[in-house]
Design a protein around this nucleic acid. Structure first.
Length: 420
RNA sequence: GUGGCCGUAGCUCAGCCUGGUUAGAGCGCCGCGUUGUGGUCGCGGAUGUCGGGGGUUCGAAUCCCCUCGGUCACCCCA
């Protein structure tokens, strides 16, 4: 190694560089299109918030308990880098009180102090939407369909949707009691960790992947069988909507998800093509109580987050979303010192043509190599001869290399013709 | 936070087990063949404190210890 670089990206973070970053751009713009088409507006907010904003997410969530980047600014204010997107959006809603339903989307980083591994980073990026102010089941359908259509538009085929309802404050407490009793009678069958923690978080035991818990909860009472009338009706309408839009899903009574704030509808998208352990590519749910917890009026809401890095991994696994050919259409080669390249490239750019050039007065041979490697389809060549005559040689780089001489004043128009 | 695996050129890696001449290959990069022309081909070139520190030895990329970094998995999630 050369003298080891004194600095590198912090553990769990990564640089996204060209040409790979072209896929990133494409993914975000694809999502932005879908969101706009569905009537969502962009929300951009702070990367850090008062730590209290996230603590309200619930003490039961690992993300809040042990994974937050917390710090004090110079004024001694307790802050935290945001570990997820929803809380910030809810805080903004409570602060500004926009008219409802408020439909917003975002593309933003999240920070969690975890041990990095494939598909899991300390800074990762999420695409998300939130709808605040409506408990219409069709909103649930809209939100789920948006995520579904994003995966589909990318060409992903091996993404499955798991769906559940975890009830609301009317019916969940009774169910949790019921489940707690069931688990209590079988404590000995649970895995080591849940043998101790089952009492405080009965729902989490359902989500445990260890075989012991898995087996012990196979016959456990299911939330879906104990929804109150309102929740059951809501869920039924959500299912009708998904069916009508031909969005396939599997009922997954174990799906509780990591945040305490969820109510009623919860869902998760899994990329089955991903070999690694981290194959959840998106998830979300309804959070009808969160706005109140953050000091706002009672406001039903729902949203999702989609992990950009994981979606791209899934795209790799399915060999879709191939990087668009990046680069310019025209390369300007100047063997007279560079001033011609400067002027020509800007004439083209100002006329809307993507053009680039080499620097440092390199040989024509070297410049032609750059032109070739750039992927440009045309090379504009200016040597002493062209300059003296006020012309430009225009060479096709793809195909036979046909070359023509064009008057300097006609170059931009001619280039546009050839590229059309 | 716990555990497995891996650190040799910009990248992918060989060499390590069985210590011994100036540490290699492919790709990439730069130059030349072609003082006005890329893609093919040929020739030439640059870049390594062999992750770092310590130890064993006449001698360490190679053996031992520590450390740092990466990676994968658990937990949990996007």
């Amino acid at each position: 190694m050369p003298p080891a670089p004194p600095f590198r990206a912090p553990s769990g973070t990564h640089d996204v560089l060209p040409p790979e970053s072209a896929r990133w751009e494409l993914l975000v713009s694809r999502f932005a299109d879908l969101a706009h088409r569905a009537g969502f507006g962009l929300v951009v907010g702070p990367l850090f918030e008062d730590v209290g904003v996230f603590q309200r997410l619930g003490e039961g969530t690992d993300v809040v308990r042990k994974e937050m980047y917390v710090f004090e600014d110079r004024g001694g204010r307790p802050l935290a880098l945001r570990p997820e997107g929803t809380a910030s959006v809810v805080r903004a809603f409570v602060q500004h009180r926009p008219t409802t339903p408020w439909k917003v989307w975002y593309a933003a980083p999240s920070f969690r102090y975890e041990r990095p591994q494939a598909g899991r980073y300390r800074q990762h990026h999420q695409l998300g939407v939130e709808v605040l102010g409506s408990d219409d089941p069709d909103v649930d359908v809209d939100v789920i369909a948006l995520a579904h259509d994003l995966y589909r538009s990318l060409g992903l085929r091996q993404v499955t949707l798991a769906l559940n309802s975890i009830g609301d404050r009317a019916c969940r407490p009774d169910y949790v009691d019921l489940l707690g009793t069931y688990l209590h009678e079988r404590t000995e069958q649970l895995c080591g960790e849940h043998r101790q923690r089952a009492g405080e978080q009965p729902l989490r035991v359902l989500d445990c992947k260890r075989p012991e818990c898995r087996h012990a909860t196979d016959a456990a009472p299911r939330m879906l069988d104990h929804l109150c009338g309102a929740c059951a009706a809501h869920f039924e309408r959500v299912r009708e909507g998904l069916d009508a839009l031909e969005i396939a899903y599997q009922l997954e009574s174990r799906l509780v998800r990591g945040f305490d704030y969820y109510t009623r509808t919860t869902f998760e998208f899994t990329a089955t093509a991903l070999a690694g352990a981290q194959n959840a590519v998106g998830g979300g749910g309804r959070y009808d109580g969160l706005v109140e917890q953050l000091g706002g009026p009672p406001t039903p809401a729902i949203g999702f987050g989609i992990g950009i890095e994981r979606v791209l991994l899934a795209c790799d696994a399915e060999a879709v979303l191939t990087p668009p050919a990046a680069g310019v259409d025209v390369w300007v080669v100047d063997a007279t010192g560079g001033a011609e390249a400067r002027d020509l490239s800007w004439s083209l750019r100002r006329a809307g043509v993507a053009a680039d050039r080499g620097f440092d007065e390199r040989s024509m041979r070297a410049q032609m190599k750059l032109a070739d490697r750039s992927g440009a389809s045309l090379a504009l060549i200016v040597g002493p001869e062209e300059r003296a005559r006020g012309t430009v040689s225009l060479r096709q780089l793809r195909g036979d290399g046909a070359q023509q001489v064009v008057a300097r004043d006609d170059v931009v128009a001619r280039v546009k013709e050839l590229l059309a």
